[in-house]
Amino acid sequence: MCLLLGAALGGAALAQQPATPVNEQQVHEVAAQLRCVVCQNLSVADSPSEMAQQMRAIVRERLAAGERPEQVVQYFVDRYGEWILLSPRGRGFNLLVWLFPAVAVAVGLAIVAVVLRRWTRRRRAAPPAAAVDAGMSERIRRELDGGA
C-alpha cells in the first residue's frame, strides 16, 4: 500500500516537473527548419557560425521552457518574417511554389495525351494503301514486267 502510494506520488511529481527535459533531436528538428541568417543556404542546424550556435541555444532554451516546436519556429518568424523558414509555408502566394510543379506536370501529361491520341487517330484514319484501282495496278505490273 505504502509502495503504491509512493509510486503514485512519484508519478505526480514527474508530471508536475516544470522544466521539460529537452530532446536534442527536437532542437535539431526545429533548427533544421530555420535559415542561418549569416550564411548562404545553410540551416541553423548545419551552420558552425556563432550566430547559428546562439540561435540553437535560443531554440533549446525555449523548448526547455515548455514551448512547442511550432511556437519556437513562430518566435523566429515574428522577428525575421517567413524568410527565416527554409521551406515556405504552403499558404497564400506561397502556394504557387507548391502547386505550380504539380500543375505543370498535369498540363504536360494532358498535352502528351492529346498529341498521342491525335497521332494514333491520324494513322487509323489514313486512306488504305489499296486505294489504287485494279486497272492501274495491273498496268504498273505489266510495265515493270516489260521493263525487266
Binding site: V38, Q54, A57, I58, Y80
Partner: peptide, 13 residues
C-alpha cells in the same frame, strides 16, 4: 553576449 537581442530585433547582419 547571447545573441538574444539581435534575434529579438531580427538582425541578420
Amino acid at each position: 553576449p547571447t545573441g538574444k537581442v539581435s534575434v529579438d530585433y531580427g538582425v541578420y547582419g
